[in-house]
């Protein structure tokens, strides 16, 4: 399984580590796609999701606030518009609506940030 996933993914260099603020996000452009990249510095983790908030179709998730919720400290991002929150792991909407956003794997090599695209 591991191997299969690794080969199916194409790693694209999108930005440098210091392009994304600590515990914040930034938006990168890949072809016509907008992808939000999050530097969860407090946990030493990186995440990426679609930049579009499905609630009102706004290109803003990278400007949202990240944090965690619950016992398991699930990482999440809150949309700046109406504060709908989404899991950075599964892309599931955590505020009770049936939205789903895309998530992408992220790899940091040195100070280069890569996103895994299928």
């Amino acid at each position: 399984m591991e191997l299969e996933i690794a080969t199916a993914v194409e790693w694209v260099l999108v930005c440098k580590t210091d392009d994304v603020p600590h515990d914040g996000g930034a938006c990168v452009k890949y072809n016509d796609e907008q992808i939000a990249v999050f530097n969860f510095a407090r946990r030493g983790e990186w995440y990426a999701t679609q930049n579009l908030c499905p609630h009102k179709q706004q290109m803003v998730l990278s400007r949202g606030m990240i944090g965690s919720t619950g016992e398991a400290c699930e990482p999440k991002v809150a949309c700046p518009f109406h504060k709908k929150t989404f899991s950075l792991l599964s892309g599931e909407c955590l505020s009770g609506d049936e939205y789903q956003i895309k998530t992408y794997p992220v790899k940091v090599v040195g100070d280069d940030v890569y996103i895994g695209l299928e």
Partner: peptide
């Protein structure tokens, strides 16, 4: 505790 959220950061 935890990593904070949109309710406590502001």
């Amino acid at each position: 505790k935890g990593d904070g959220c949109e309710l406590c950061k502001p």
